[in-house]
């Protein structure tokens, strides 16, 4: 509870400083709108459902893209972990691709798929796949040898050993992979939507910028940040904690 109170006070203070700066009238309202104006714009957006539709569209892109990248990442990760040649060739390439910022893929996606939703989903998939792949690979390779030995002495081998022991043993890595894939995908999604023709939060952001609607720009930035941290802290970190505890990798 302590922490929550500290945070609330911090954010109230931040809004007060913001309001203070606006009141000093150093910059025009079209550059720094007041907090009230931003919240009012957000309220209007949710009231007439435009922001709700944007959110739904963005989440649709995100979840389709994330689901695809988790599937591909898992499959390729297993391949890299089990086939040495694949790891030495494809693995190196994926490691290199992982360092390419996902916004770089946007121009390519636009040429291939146009400005529509397919292009956005493509960029989201690219954003999440590589980190998921590398986590699954590490997870499968790092299964504790004692689990394998125990499994073998109990008559498990080959495919059975892989499915019943290697895969469940690497779940903690998979969960971290999903969490990171979500974070990367979320960033990729915004980058892609900014350049798309909508709908989506990113599209509305660039639209608002074009029409000099600064309140909406800041409002959407706040929404993006809020969703990012809420998902990470409430969903993924909790999931990760739970798995790490169960797998005995962390004391409660």
């Amino acid at each position: 509870m302590q922490v929550t109170i500290k945070r609330i006070i911090f954010f109230l203070l931040l809004i007060a400083i913001w309001q203070g700066i606006v009141l000093m009238e150093i910059w025009p309202q079209s550059m720094i709108p007041s907090p009230f104006s931003v919240f009012h714009t957000l309220y209007l957006g949710f009231a007439d459902l435009t922001l709700v539709y944007d959110l739904l569209a963005s989440f649709r892109h995100l979840f389709i893209g994330l689901a695809i990248s988790i599937c591909i990442g898992t499959a390729v990760g297993i391949l890299l972990a089990t086939v040495k040649t694949a790891d030495e060739t494809l693995g190196t390439m994926i490691l290199a691709l992982q360092s390419v910022p996902s916004i770089v893929w946007v121009p390519l996606a636009i040429i291939w798929f146009g400005f529509g939703e397919t292009a956005i989903i493509f960029v989201v998939v690219i954003g999440g796949t590589f980190v998921m792949t590398m986590n699954i690979r590490t997870g499968v390779q790092n299964v504790a040898p004692i689990f394998l030995d125990a499994g073998k002495t109990m008559g498990s081998k080959g495919v059975d050993l892989f499915i019943k022991i290697v895969l469940p043993a690497s779940v903690p890595y998979a969960v971290t992979g999903v969490r990171l894939a979500w974070a990367f995908s979320w960033r990729a999604l915004m980058a892609a939507e900014l350049l798309s023709t909508g709908p989506g939060l990113g599209f509305t952001l660039s639209y608002a910028s074009d029409f000099n609607n600064m309140s909406l720009v800041i409002g959407i930035i706040i929404i993006i940040g809020a969703i990012g941290s809420i998902m990470d802290q409430l969903v993924f970190q909790r999931m990760e904690q739970k798995v790490l505890t169960r797998w005995g990798l962390q004391k409660t």
Partner: peptide
């Protein structure tokens, strides 16, 4: 041939 290891080697899942 059953083995009991130094660590219990139970499957945490």
């Amino acid at each position: 041939k059953g083995v009991v290891f130094q660590e219990a080697a139970l499957f945490p899942w």
